[in-house]
Amino acid sequence: MSAEAQSSPEAVRRSDRREWLTRNQSIFIAYALAIILWGITSLFASDFATWDHTKSLLTEACFVGIVAAGQTFVIISGGVDLSVPWMLNSVATLLTLWTHGHDSSLVWVVPVLLAGAAGVGLINGIGVTVFGVQPIIMTLGMNGVLEGGVLLITSGGQSPNAPHTIAHLSTGTFAGIPIAVLIWAVLAIVAWLALSRTPFGRKLYAVGTNGTVARLSGVRVGRVTITSYVISALCSAIAGILLVGYVGQAYLGMGDSYLFTSVAAVIIGGASILGGTGNYFGTIAGALILTVLTSLLPILNLNPAALQVVYGAVILVTVILASVRIGGVRD
Protein backbone atom coordinates (compact mmCIF):
# COMPACT_ATOMS: atom_id res chain seq x y z
CA MET A 1 0.00 0.00 0.00
CA SER A 2 2.65 2.38 -1.16
CA ALA A 3 0.46 5.44 -1.55
CA GLU A 4 -0.50 5.33 2.08
CA ALA A 5 2.94 5.79 3.64
CA GLN A 6 3.32 7.99 6.67
CA SER A 7 3.99 11.59 5.72
CA SER A 8 5.42 14.53 7.57
CA PRO A 9 3.14 17.53 8.26
CA GLU A 10 5.17 19.44 5.70
CA ALA A 11 4.50 16.85 3.05
CA VAL A 12 0.84 16.85 3.99
CA ARG A 13 0.60 20.60 3.56
CA ARG A 14 2.30 20.40 0.20
CA SER A 15 -0.03 17.64 -0.84
CA ASP A 16 -3.02 19.67 0.36
CA ARG A 17 -1.96 22.59 -1.75
CA ARG A 18 -1.50 20.35 -4.76
CA GLU A 19 -4.95 18.90 -4.17
CA TRP A 20 -6.49 22.39 -4.02
CA LEU A 21 -4.74 23.35 -7.23
CA THR A 22 -5.95 20.24 -9.03
CA ARG A 23 -9.46 20.68 -7.82
CA ASN A 24 -9.61 24.25 -9.02
CA GLN A 25 -7.51 23.92 -12.14
CA SER A 26 -10.43 24.47 -14.47
CA ILE A 27 -11.15 27.79 -12.82
CA PHE A 28 -7.58 28.91 -13.29
CA ILE A 29 -7.77 27.89 -16.92
CA ALA A 30 -10.96 29.88 -17.33
CA TYR A 31 -9.47 33.03 -15.85
CA ALA A 32 -6.32 32.60 -17.90
CA LEU A 33 -8.46 32.35 -20.99
CA ALA A 34 -10.47 35.40 -19.98
CA ILE A 35 -7.34 37.46 -19.47
CA ILE A 36 -5.82 36.29 -22.75
CA LEU A 37 -8.98 37.17 -24.64
CA TRP A 38 -9.19 40.53 -22.98
CA GLY A 39 -5.58 41.15 -23.89
CA ILE A 40 -6.10 40.20 -27.52
CA THR A 41 -9.14 42.41 -27.79
CA SER A 42 -7.26 45.32 -26.29
CA LEU A 43 -4.60 44.92 -28.93
CA PHE A 44 -7.11 45.30 -31.69
CA ALA A 45 -9.17 48.06 -30.19
CA SER A 46 -7.46 51.00 -28.63
CA ASP A 47 -10.46 52.04 -26.58
CA PHE A 48 -11.10 48.61 -25.21
CA ALA A 49 -8.95 48.77 -22.16
CA THR A 50 -10.50 51.99 -20.90
CA TRP A 51 -12.53 52.21 -17.75
CA ASP A 52 -15.57 53.43 -19.68
CA HIS A 53 -15.58 50.45 -21.92
CA THR A 54 -14.86 48.06 -19.10
CA LYS A 55 -17.86 49.44 -17.26
CA SER A 56 -20.21 48.70 -20.12
CA LEU A 57 -18.57 45.33 -20.62
CA LEU A 58 -19.17 44.41 -17.00
CA THR A 59 -22.76 45.61 -17.23
CA GLU A 60 -23.33 43.44 -20.26
CA ALA A 61 -21.75 40.54 -18.44
CA CYS A 62 -23.76 40.95 -15.27
CA PHE A 63 -27.02 39.75 -16.81
CA VAL A 64 -25.45 36.49 -17.89
CA GLY A 65 -23.57 36.42 -14.63
CA ILE A 66 -26.69 36.66 -12.52
CA VAL A 67 -28.65 34.06 -14.47
CA ALA A 68 -25.59 31.83 -14.45
CA ALA A 69 -25.37 32.14 -10.69
CA GLY A 70 -28.65 30.34 -10.33
CA GLN A 71 -27.64 27.88 -13.01
CA THR A 72 -24.45 27.20 -11.07
CA PHE A 73 -26.38 26.05 -8.04
CA VAL A 74 -28.60 23.79 -10.08
CA ILE A 75 -25.78 22.28 -12.08
CA ILE A 76 -23.73 21.60 -8.97
CA SER A 77 -26.73 19.74 -7.55
CA GLY A 78 -26.63 17.52 -10.60
CA GLY A 79 -29.44 19.07 -12.60
CA VAL A 80 -29.90 21.81 -15.13
CA ASP A 81 -32.45 24.60 -15.44
CA LEU A 82 -33.84 25.02 -18.92
CA SER A 83 -36.70 27.23 -17.75
CA VAL A 84 -34.36 30.19 -17.45
CA PRO A 85 -35.35 31.94 -20.73
CA TRP A 86 -39.04 32.28 -20.02
CA MET A 87 -38.58 32.76 -16.30
CA LEU A 88 -36.60 35.85 -17.13
CA ASN A 89 -38.96 36.87 -19.87
CA SER A 90 -42.12 36.44 -17.84
CA VAL A 91 -40.82 38.45 -14.91
CA ALA A 92 -39.68 41.20 -17.24
CA THR A 93 -42.99 41.23 -19.09
CA LEU A 94 -45.15 41.16 -16.00
CA LEU A 95 -43.09 43.86 -14.37
CA THR A 96 -43.81 46.31 -17.15
CA LEU A 97 -47.39 45.17 -17.49
CA TRP A 98 -48.27 45.55 -13.84
CA THR A 99 -46.41 48.77 -13.19
CA HIS A 100 -47.44 50.46 -16.44
CA GLY A 101 -44.13 52.20 -16.35
CA HIS A 102 -44.78 53.88 -12.97
CA ASP A 103 -42.67 53.53 -9.90
CA SER A 104 -45.57 53.55 -7.49
CA SER A 105 -46.54 49.94 -7.89
CA LEU A 106 -43.01 48.70 -7.66
CA VAL A 107 -43.27 48.27 -3.95
CA TRP A 108 -45.69 45.40 -4.31
CA VAL A 109 -44.97 44.20 -7.85
CA VAL A 110 -41.35 43.29 -7.24
CA PRO A 111 -41.97 41.18 -4.11
CA VAL A 112 -44.90 39.45 -5.77
CA LEU A 113 -42.84 38.65 -8.82
CA LEU A 114 -39.98 37.34 -6.75
CA ALA A 115 -42.35 35.23 -4.72
CA GLY A 116 -43.89 33.94 -7.90
CA ALA A 117 -40.50 33.08 -9.27
CA ALA A 118 -39.67 31.23 -6.08
CA GLY A 119 -42.92 29.38 -6.51
CA VAL A 120 -42.01 28.32 -10.01
CA GLY A 121 -38.64 27.17 -8.76
CA LEU A 122 -40.40 25.25 -6.05
CA ILE A 123 -42.55 23.49 -8.63
CA ASN A 124 -39.50 22.67 -10.69
CA GLY A 125 -37.80 21.24 -7.61
CA ILE A 126 -40.83 19.26 -6.56
CA GLY A 127 -41.21 17.82 -10.04
CA VAL A 128 -37.61 16.68 -9.98
CA THR A 129 -37.48 15.29 -6.46
CA VAL A 130 -40.97 14.10 -5.63
CA PHE A 131 -42.11 12.99 -9.05
CA GLY A 132 -38.74 11.93 -10.32
CA VAL A 133 -38.99 13.84 -13.58
CA GLN A 134 -35.53 14.45 -15.04
CA PRO A 135 -34.38 18.06 -14.75
CA ILE A 136 -34.05 18.46 -18.52
CA ILE A 137 -37.65 17.46 -19.02
CA MET A 138 -39.13 19.21 -16.00
CA THR A 139 -37.55 22.57 -16.65
CA LEU A 140 -38.11 22.26 -20.37
CA GLY A 141 -41.77 21.65 -19.78
CA MET A 142 -41.91 24.52 -17.33
CA ASN A 143 -40.31 26.77 -19.90
CA GLY A 144 -43.08 25.93 -22.32
CA VAL A 145 -45.73 26.45 -19.68
CA LEU A 146 -44.31 29.84 -18.77
CA GLU A 147 -44.06 30.83 -22.40
CA GLY A 148 -47.61 29.81 -23.14
CA GLY A 149 -48.87 31.35 -19.94
CA VAL A 150 -47.21 34.71 -20.39
CA LEU A 151 -48.15 34.94 -24.03
CA LEU A 152 -51.75 34.20 -23.16
CA ILE A 153 -51.81 36.96 -20.58
CA THR A 154 -50.22 39.53 -22.80
CA SER A 155 -51.50 38.27 -26.13
CA GLY A 156 -48.13 39.22 -27.46
CA GLY A 157 -48.85 42.90 -27.36
CA GLN A 158 -46.42 45.75 -27.01
CA SER A 159 -45.01 46.10 -23.53
CA PRO A 160 -45.06 49.38 -21.66
CA ASN A 161 -41.82 51.00 -20.66
CA ALA A 162 -39.91 49.91 -17.63
CA PRO A 163 -40.35 52.01 -14.48
CA HIS A 164 -37.79 54.71 -13.89
CA THR A 165 -36.33 53.26 -10.75
CA ILE A 166 -35.53 50.03 -12.45
CA ALA A 167 -34.10 51.76 -15.45
CA HIS A 168 -31.95 53.84 -13.16
CA LEU A 169 -30.75 50.72 -11.35
CA SER A 170 -29.65 49.11 -14.52
CA THR A 171 -28.10 52.05 -16.22
CA GLY A 172 -26.99 54.30 -13.40
CA THR A 173 -23.79 54.34 -11.44
CA PHE A 174 -22.81 54.69 -7.82
CA ALA A 175 -19.35 55.92 -7.00
CA GLY A 176 -18.43 55.46 -10.61
CA ILE A 177 -19.43 51.80 -10.71
CA PRO A 178 -22.59 50.71 -12.51
CA ILE A 179 -25.24 49.79 -9.95
CA ALA A 180 -26.10 46.65 -11.86
CA VAL A 181 -22.51 45.51 -11.49
CA LEU A 182 -22.61 46.29 -7.78
CA ILE A 183 -25.73 44.20 -7.45
CA TRP A 184 -23.93 41.45 -9.29
CA ALA A 185 -20.97 41.76 -6.98
CA VAL A 186 -23.18 41.45 -3.92
CA LEU A 187 -24.87 38.41 -5.39
CA ALA A 188 -21.50 36.95 -6.24
CA ILE A 189 -20.33 37.26 -2.68
CA VAL A 190 -23.52 35.73 -1.38
CA ALA A 191 -23.24 32.88 -3.86
CA TRP A 192 -19.62 32.24 -3.02
CA LEU A 193 -20.32 32.23 0.71
CA ALA A 194 -23.32 30.00 0.33
CA LEU A 195 -21.43 27.45 -1.73
CA SER A 196 -18.19 27.28 0.17
CA ARG A 197 -18.91 28.35 3.72
CA THR A 198 -22.30 27.00 4.67
CA PRO A 199 -23.63 23.57 5.47
CA PHE A 200 -26.07 24.04 2.61
CA GLY A 201 -23.23 24.40 0.15
CA ARG A 202 -21.53 21.28 1.45
CA LYS A 203 -24.76 19.36 1.16
CA LEU A 204 -25.32 20.68 -2.35
CA TYR A 205 -21.96 19.35 -3.48
CA ALA A 206 -22.69 16.05 -1.78
CA VAL A 207 -26.04 15.71 -3.53
CA GLY A 208 -24.47 16.48 -6.87
CA THR A 209 -21.67 14.00 -6.33
CA ASN A 210 -23.82 11.06 -5.27
CA GLY A 211 -27.38 11.55 -4.18
CA THR A 212 -27.62 8.13 -2.57
CA VAL A 213 -24.57 8.62 -0.42
CA ALA A 214 -25.81 12.06 0.53
CA ARG A 215 -29.16 10.69 1.57
CA LEU A 216 -27.64 7.86 3.58
CA SER A 217 -25.41 10.42 5.28
CA GLY A 218 -28.44 12.25 6.57
CA VAL A 219 -28.73 14.99 3.97
CA ARG A 220 -32.29 15.98 3.13
CA VAL A 221 -31.68 15.61 -0.58
CA GLY A 222 -35.12 16.77 -1.59
CA ARG A 223 -34.88 20.04 0.28
CA VAL A 224 -31.42 20.80 -0.99
CA THR A 225 -32.39 20.15 -4.60
CA ILE A 226 -35.60 22.15 -4.39
CA THR A 227 -33.69 25.05 -2.85
CA SER A 228 -31.28 25.08 -5.78
CA TYR A 229 -34.15 25.40 -8.26
CA VAL A 230 -35.70 28.17 -6.22
CA ILE A 231 -32.39 30.01 -6.23
CA SER A 232 -32.12 29.62 -9.97
CA ALA A 233 -35.61 30.93 -10.56
CA LEU A 234 -34.92 33.93 -8.32
CA CYS A 235 -31.70 34.68 -10.15
CA SER A 236 -33.47 34.60 -13.49
CA ALA A 237 -36.13 36.86 -12.05
CA ILE A 238 -33.60 39.37 -10.79
CA ALA A 239 -31.84 39.29 -14.13
CA GLY A 240 -35.16 39.84 -15.84
CA ILE A 241 -35.90 42.88 -13.71
CA LEU A 242 -32.51 44.39 -14.36
CA LEU A 243 -32.56 43.56 -18.03
CA VAL A 244 -35.89 45.18 -18.65
CA GLY A 245 -34.53 48.30 -17.00
CA TYR A 246 -31.44 48.21 -19.15
CA VAL A 247 -33.25 47.68 -22.41
CA GLY A 248 -36.21 49.87 -21.49
CA GLN A 249 -38.90 47.42 -22.50
CA ALA A 250 -39.78 43.79 -22.38
CA TYR A 251 -39.85 41.94 -25.67
CA LEU A 252 -40.57 38.45 -26.86
CA GLY A 253 -37.62 36.18 -26.73
CA MET A 254 -35.45 38.43 -24.60
CA GLY A 255 -34.52 35.50 -22.45
CA ASP A 256 -33.77 32.99 -25.18
CA SER A 257 -30.07 33.58 -25.50
CA TYR A 258 -29.57 33.13 -21.77
CA LEU A 259 -30.20 29.42 -21.91
CA PHE A 260 -27.07 28.72 -23.85
CA THR A 261 -24.96 31.41 -22.25
CA SER A 262 -25.86 30.56 -18.66
CA VAL A 263 -25.05 26.89 -19.12
CA ALA A 264 -21.97 27.72 -21.17
CA ALA A 265 -20.70 30.11 -18.52
CA VAL A 266 -21.00 27.44 -15.83
CA ILE A 267 -19.29 24.81 -17.99
CA ILE A 268 -16.52 27.07 -19.14
CA GLY A 269 -16.06 28.00 -15.52
CA GLY A 270 -15.09 24.45 -14.78
CA ALA A 271 -18.17 22.78 -13.38
CA SER A 272 -19.10 19.34 -14.57
CA ILE A 273 -22.56 18.99 -16.08
CA LEU A 274 -22.96 15.91 -13.93
CA GLY A 275 -22.75 17.96 -10.76
CA GLY A 276 -20.63 17.91 -7.66
CA THR A 277 -17.90 20.26 -8.83
CA GLY A 278 -17.32 23.87 -9.70
CA ASN A 279 -17.95 27.16 -7.99
CA TYR A 280 -19.23 30.59 -8.80
CA PHE A 281 -15.84 32.16 -9.38
CA GLY A 282 -15.44 29.93 -12.36
CA THR A 283 -18.85 30.87 -13.66
CA ILE A 284 -17.92 34.54 -13.43
CA ALA A 285 -14.90 33.86 -15.59
CA GLY A 286 -17.16 32.04 -18.01
CA ALA A 287 -19.58 34.94 -18.17
CA LEU A 288 -16.71 37.36 -18.77
CA ILE A 289 -15.27 35.21 -21.54
CA LEU A 290 -18.59 35.03 -23.32
CA THR A 291 -19.10 38.76 -23.05
CA VAL A 292 -15.62 39.63 -24.24
CA LEU A 293 -16.07 37.30 -27.19
CA THR A 294 -19.29 39.05 -28.13
CA SER A 295 -17.59 42.42 -28.15
CA LEU A 296 -14.68 40.99 -30.08
CA LEU A 297 -17.05 40.51 -33.00
CA PRO A 298 -17.49 44.03 -34.27
CA ILE A 299 -13.89 44.89 -33.41
CA LEU A 300 -12.46 42.18 -35.59
CA ASN A 301 -15.17 42.74 -38.16
CA LEU A 302 -16.28 39.18 -37.89
CA ASN A 303 -19.40 37.54 -39.14
CA PRO A 304 -21.96 36.80 -36.40
CA ALA A 305 -21.64 33.24 -37.59
CA ALA A 306 -18.07 33.20 -36.40
CA LEU A 307 -19.19 34.10 -32.90
CA GLN A 308 -21.33 30.99 -32.72
CA VAL A 309 -18.47 28.85 -33.87
CA VAL A 310 -16.11 30.44 -31.40
CA TYR A 311 -18.56 29.96 -28.52
CA GLY A 312 -18.69 26.29 -29.30
CA ALA A 313 -14.97 26.03 -29.71
CA VAL A 314 -14.32 27.73 -26.38
CA ILE A 315 -16.59 25.29 -24.58
CA LEU A 316 -14.84 22.34 -26.21
CA VAL A 317 -11.40 23.68 -25.48
CA THR A 318 -12.04 24.33 -21.82
CA VAL A 319 -13.72 20.99 -21.29
CA ILE A 320 -11.00 19.07 -23.08
CA LEU A 321 -8.28 20.89 -21.17
CA ALA A 322 -10.02 20.18 -17.91
CA SER A 323 -10.38 16.49 -18.63
CA VAL A 324 -6.81 16.06 -19.76
CA ARG A 325 -5.18 16.86 -16.47
CA ILE A 326 -7.55 15.30 -14.00
CA GLY A 327 -6.34 11.90 -12.94
CA GLY A 328 -6.56 10.00 -9.70
CA VAL A 329 -10.09 9.02 -8.89
CA ARG A 330 -11.54 6.21 -10.88
CA ASP A 331 -15.34 6.03 -11.01
Binding site: F260, S272, Q308, V309, Y311, G312, A313, I315, V319
Partner: peptide, 20 residues
Protein backbone atom coordinates in the same frame (compact mmCIF):
# COMPACT_ATOMS: atom_id res chain seq x y z
CA UNK B 1 -16.57 14.27 -22.15
CA UNK B 2 -20.24 14.51 -21.40
CA UNK B 3 -22.65 14.35 -24.35
CA UNK B 4 -24.61 17.34 -23.05
CA UNK B 5 -21.58 19.56 -23.06
CA UNK B 6 -20.05 18.32 -26.31
CA UNK B 7 -23.25 18.61 -28.27
CA UNK B 8 -23.97 21.99 -26.68
CA UNK B 9 -20.69 23.14 -28.14
CA UNK B 10 -21.17 21.53 -31.55
CA UNK B 11 -24.71 22.91 -31.67
CA UNK B 12 -23.25 26.35 -31.49
CA UNK B 13 -20.57 25.51 -34.02
CA UNK B 14 -23.02 24.00 -36.48
CA UNK B 15 -25.40 26.91 -36.03
CA UNK B 16 -22.52 29.21 -36.81
CA UNK B 17 -21.67 27.28 -39.96
CA UNK B 18 -25.29 27.44 -41.06
CA UNK B 19 -25.32 31.19 -40.46
CA UNK B 20 -22.24 31.50 -42.59
Amino acid sequence: LQPFVVTLATWSIFDGIALW
